[in-house]
Amino acid sequence: MLLAFSSPPFYTTYVHLPPEDDPTPARIYHAPRYHPFFAHALGAADGSHITTAPPAEERGPSRNRKGGVSQNIFVTCTLDTLLFTYVLSGIEGSATDATVFQMAREADFRVPDGRYYLADAGYGFLDVLLVPYRGVRYHLAEWGRANVKPVNKEELFNLRHAKLRNTIERLFGILKKRFPILRSGCEYRMKYQVRLPPALCALHNFIRLHDPSEINNFIDIHEDPDRPPSTGELAQGPATRAERERANARRDYIATSMWNSYQEWARQAEEAQEMVL
C-alpha cells in the first residue's frame, strides 16, 4: 500500500501543483487585510523534519540541529483547503531548509511567472517566495505575548504574513497527529522510509476531499510541534543579485501599500469613534 499511495495514479491524482491560472485563494480574496496585497500567492511553503532510522553508517548526515535523526522534507500547501500540493522527501536531516528547497527547484518544483508562495525568512529573497522581514517580530506566539499593535509597515506585513503562512505549520501538526509514525519513526529500509511522507500526504488529501468534516478532529492544532519558532538562516542558493533586489522591492511595495491602507482604516475608525462620543 505504501508504494501505491506514493506512486501514480493515486499520488498524482491527490498531490499536484496548482495550475498556472489558479485563482487567488478565497481566504485572501475575501479579506481586506490580505487583498489585494497577497493576491498573487499560490499557497504556503515550508520544511519539516520526519524521524527516521537509517543504518548506523548513514546516521551522521541524518542528524539534525536538535540532535535527532531525521529526513528533511519540503512541502507546499493550499491556504483554503488544507491540502498538500507538493512534497519532496528523503533529504538528510542535516540539510538546511534552503538546501532542500533548491533541490526541489532543480527537480520538478515549478512556480508560474508572477506567482509565489509564502515562506519563512530561512529561504531568503527569491522571485518564487515571499518571506518576512528579519529582525522584526514575526511568529504568532511572539505577537500573543506582546499584546500590541503593529507600529510600522514591517511589523504589519510580518503579522499578516504569519497568519496566512501558519496554515502550513498547522497542516504539519495535523499530519503528524493523524499519522504518529512520522514522529516516532520506523525500522523499514530507507527506500521505504523516504516514501512515507509523500504517501501519507496523499492519503491526507484523499481524506480531506472525501470526508471534509473529519478535519474537525484536529481543530485544536495550530502549528507543527517539531518546528521551533525561528526564522532560520538566510538561503545561500543561486539567486542572483537582481532576483534578490526584485524580491525585496516587491515585499517593500506590498508592505507600504498595506501600511497605508491600515493607516487610512485607523483614521476612519478614530473619526467614527469621535462622532459617537
Rank of each mutant, 00 (worst) to 15 (best):
L2H: 00
S7Y: 00
F10M: 03
Y11V: 02
Y14E: 02
P18A: 12
E20M: 15
D21T: 13
D21L: 12
T24Y: 01
Y34L: 00
H35C: 14
H35G: 05
H35M: 09
F38D: 01
A44T: 09
A44M: 10
A45I: 15
A45Y: 11
G47V: 04
I50R: 08
R63C: 10
R65W: 09
R65K: 14
G67F: 07
T78C: 06
L79Q: 02
T81G: 04
T81I: 05
F84N: 00
V87M: 09
E92N: 04
G93H: 02
D97P: 03
D97A: 00
D97C: 03
T99H: 06
T99Y: 01
Q102D: 14
D108N: 14
P112N: 05
Y116S: 09
D127V: 03
L129K: 05
L130Q: 05
V131G: 04
Y133A: 03
Y133W: 10
G135R: 08
V136D: 02
H139C: 09
E142C: 11
G144I: 04
N147Q: 15
V151A: 14
L159P: 05
T167A: 08
F172Y: 12
G173N: 07
L175S: 00
F179A: 01
F179W: 12
G185W: 04
K191E: 15
Y192R: 14
Y192T: 15
V194G: 02
P197Q: 02
A199C: 06
I207E: 03
I207M: 10
R208T: 07
L209M: 13
H210K: 10
S213Q: 14
I215R: 08
E223Y: 07
E223A: 11
E223C: 12
P225H: 10
D226A: 13
P229R: 03
S230E: 10
G232N: 07
E233D: 12
L234F: 08
Q236F: 06
G237K: 07
P238M: 07
T240D: 03
A242Y: 01
R246H: 09
N248M: 14
A249C: 10
R250H: 13
R250A: 09
T256G: 13
W259A: 04
W259H: 09
N260I: 14
N260A: 15
Y262P: 02
W265G: 06
A266I: 12
Q268F: 08
E271V: 13
A272C: 11
